[in-house]
Amino acid sequence: MASPPQNQTSERERRAQLLDQLLRTERGRLIRQARYHSRRAEDAEDALGDACVQFLRFYGGQADDHALRWMLLVTKRCAWAIRRKAMARESRYRLIAPEGEDELVEAIIADDRSDAAELVERGEETATVLSLIEQLKPDERTALILLGLGCTYAEIRELRGWSKTKLNRCLSEGRARVRQLLERGEV
């Protein structure tokens, strides 16, 4: 009697042979099924690929019409799964599209609530920072933005032709003004 690992190996080989045979004779029918239930040709290929993986892992039937019917049904379900994922992604992208409040609310209601909430929060923070920066003097704004972008003090001085004192004053006064605005709640 064969040991369990040997049985598993032979079962895997049997499935692989079955799948190989099935794809040689019925690939056209399977890809038509995948395309019928997919939005794009690439998605259909993915769906058929996923179904093949599932076949290799789970198929326990015989090498007759059952294998084809099994694959037709599983291919359809895999195509639906790919479609669902694509739709979930699209609902997230709608959130950042500049189409107004209604679109924003609609996207928040969509499936992935945690991601939507996170994006809204990040959007609010960005709006606050932009509002603060707009209220600074031009040189303070430039100094803080360049520093925030990762420039060194030396690089900023070189870019703007400023002295060390000028740069230090712009940065320190700019920061102080931001703190004041935040404390007063003027954003």
Binding site: D50, Q54, F58, G61, H66, W70, L73, V74, C78
Partner: peptide, 22 residues
């Protein structure tokens, strides 16, 4: 139950025949 979501089913009769339902 059939993958990937295990919602569709296969009824297996006499180890060789049967049908699929979604």
């Amino acid at each position: 139950t059939l993958p990937p979501d295990h919602e569709a089913i296969a009824l297996v009769m006499d180890e060789k025949t049967g049908f699929y339902l979604d």
